[in-house]
Structure formats: C-alpha cells, structure tokens
Nucleic acid binder design. Structure first.
Length: 216
DNA sequence: AATATGCACAACCGCGAGGCA
DNA sequence: TTGCCTCGCGGTTGTGCATAT
C-alpha cells in the first residue's frame, strides 16, 4: 500500500499555471498571508494541490523575487557555498536575496556544473578531475573547509542596506575555515549552537551565515 | 523548410522532519 | 511513545524555445 496522496488528485489541475490562477493565488496570499497550504487552494478557489500553490508562490509569484540573469558575484557565491554545503539549495538560496532554491538549482545544473566540468573541475567535490587530492584530515573524523568570506559580507551589507565602503575596501579575501568533527559530549553539542542565533523567521545565523547552514 | 538536438526553467514527485494530539 | 498531518527540500521530469543539421 502506497503513501496517501498529498491531495485529491482527481480534481486538481496540473501543468503550467494560468494568469487567472496566478491572480487568485496572489490575491489570496495578499489578503490572508502565507501558510496553511493544504487548505489554501480550496479557500482561494483554486483547483490545485497545496504543494503546487506553495511552489508557485515561492518560486515565481513572491514580490521580492529578483528575476533575470545571475551576476558574476552571485555566480561565484553559489560556487563557494556549494563547495561548502553541497546540494543544500535552500541554504544557498538563503544567502542570495531574491533568488529561490529552485532557480539556483536549475542554474547550477544548466550553467555552473557544465562550466566547472569544462574547466576540469568535479562539480561535486570542487576538485580537479585529474588530480583529486584527498581532503586533509586534522584529526580523526575532522575536516577543514575554507572559502572566501569577503563576498558573503558584501551581500550581507547590501541586504541590510548599510553597505560600508570603508569596511569593504579594508577587507581582504578572508578565508573562513570550518572544522567539522563529531562532538564528543552533550556539552559540546550544545556549544556547537553557540556559533550564532536564530533570526525572527527561524533561520540560524552561524558566523554570519544565517539561514541554518548546519541545521542546528 | 523541416526535422533533430540541446538548453533553460517551471513544475511535479517522493521522502524526511517536525509539530501535535 | 506512537501515529497522523503538514510543510519543506532535493531530485527528476516535462515542455517550450533556440539553434544546428
């Protein structure tokens, strides 16, 4: 016996959204806010499942979305975050204001991935395909990952609307080194959480990388 | 001009996590 | 503690458009 469907599929539309459906969804969310996706379609008079409505809103209709081509800086940031986080598209999207996880995932698969392969870089490991050097091990089960911090800060400042030119000028291409190892006690597990705090929508701010990088 | 192929991206599907009774 | 429900995520597919043959 399979899993129960998320909605009554027999009476729901599938495929591309029409202008009228978009308008209904926008109007409903403007009036009632996001959430309760399960009951939303019925309340909004849409013959769609809640999942479909949520996806349409998040990936296409949200007013704060930034449409259009990715900039060079966004491009580089995606590569760096992917080297750190892997296919955690929602976390990566959290560092790119106005971009969605789906958009970034598509962009990665159609542009960046191909380009890295063309340069002889394995897009999954971010290492040379010909010379896959082993990840250095500092101690048992401990890995070190480094990536540039400078552009992250630049984006944070732009996002906050308080870009400080002096601060940026002074900042070299900082390396953020993370060491990942299994905690050996409850106290250490707790201490891992001390790296940051949750913001008002529940994203975790770890070393300035809010949005729950490590899902703690 | 017709067809084949590749590309870009919207949308769907299945699963896991977390909340709640 | 258990089971159900909802939400969100990541992988995959479908479709329309552009380009090549």
């Amino acid at each position: 016996m399979g899993r129960s469907p998320c909605c009554e599929k027999a009476h729901t539309n599938k495929g591309a959204w029409t202008k009228e459906e978009d308008d209904r969804l926008i109007a409903y969310i403007k009036a009632h806010g996001e959430g309760c996706w399960r009951s939303l379609p019925k309340a909004a008079g849409l013959l769609r499942c809640g999942k479909s409505c949520r996806l349409r809103w998040i990936n296409y209709l949200r007013p704060d979305l930034k449409r259009g081509n990715f900039t060079q800086e966004e491009d580089e940031l995606i590569i760096k975050l992917h080297s750190l986080l892997g296919n955690k598209w929602s976390l990566i999207a959290g560092k790119l204001p106005g971009r969605t996880d789906n958009e970034i995932k598509n962009y990665w698969n159609t542009h960046i991935r191909r380009r890295l392969i063309g340069r002889g870089i394995d897009p999954m490991t971010h290492r040379s395909i010909e010379d896959p050097a082993p990840i250095p091990v500092l101690q048992e089960n401990t890995k070190t990952i480094s990536f540039s911090r400078a552009k992250l800060d630049y984006y944070n400042q732009e996002q906050d609307g308080n870009a400080n030119g002096d601060d940026q000028k002074e900042r070299p291409d900082l390396n953020l080194e993370l060491r990942i190892s299994p905690p050996c006690s409850q106290q250490q597990q707790e201490s891992l959480k001390i790296g940051g705090s949750r913001d008002n929508i529940g994203r975790y701010d770890f070393l300035g990388l809010e949005s729950g990088v490590f899902g703690l």
